[in-house]
Amino acid sequence: MRGRGFQIYAICYLIFLYAPIALLPIFAFNNSTVISFPLSGFTTQWFSQLWTDTSLLLAVKHSLIVAVSVSILATCFGVFAARATTRYAFPMKQGLMGMIMLPLVLPDIIIAVSLLVVLMQMGASLSILTVILGHTLIATPFTIAILNSAFQSLDKSLEEAAIDLGETPASTFRLIILPLVMPGIISSLLIAFSISLDEYIIAAFLSGTEATLPVYIFAQFRFPNKVPVIMALGTILVCLSIALLTIAEYFRRRGIAKAGGKDTGGFL
């Protein structure tokens, strides 16, 4: 009896979670500007319209620049932090790590507002550069979490063995550590990329005139005839996100298995 209750709950939960997403492709291929049932026929015109919309393409370009920069920056910071916490002892290590991880639980709106205030005070002009800054801030805790698990599953004696066999600390990093944490690095790059790609609040506050994709999409909802195009775009984004997350998780697990460690973290 109880098992059945849980089953129903689980099914409702999944419907609630995925039904809206399932609607995206349905209306993306629906031959009508009105988003409602019954459907009125199959079309791919919304997808072809995507390619002719220059302001949309510009927003895509901004988003890609931001996402790629953020994934590289946040992953670099993640590597430094993970390496430091897993190898070195320093004063206030716990507290410091807590501070770095804080944006994970801080509401984005607070980060966005405070960044905006600071940037205004500094007289900086808003552009994708400021968005990169904000996104790096919120993506870094995630990359640290991923990379920590990758670095933690590294046996310290592997490094010592390489040094014992004549390598320098630098070449040891390149020959032993990097290959072994590479899956973690790839998954960190992908996670940071996807976090940045669909982030709205910070981008809305900090992008100025250089709107990123989510900011652009939200603005387009004012025009009803644009909605199906956005459905088409949303469909592409959903597929892309799923692909990215799957690849990221695949690399993370492979990395842990390869280094012979135990799975201690991750999101999926």
Partner: peptide, 13 residues
């Protein structure tokens, strides 16, 4: 000197 580690420290990759 060279060392044989307790965990052997064989490079897994």
């Amino acid at each position: 000197t060279n060392m044989v580690f307790q965990s052997y420290a064989i490079f897994p990759h």
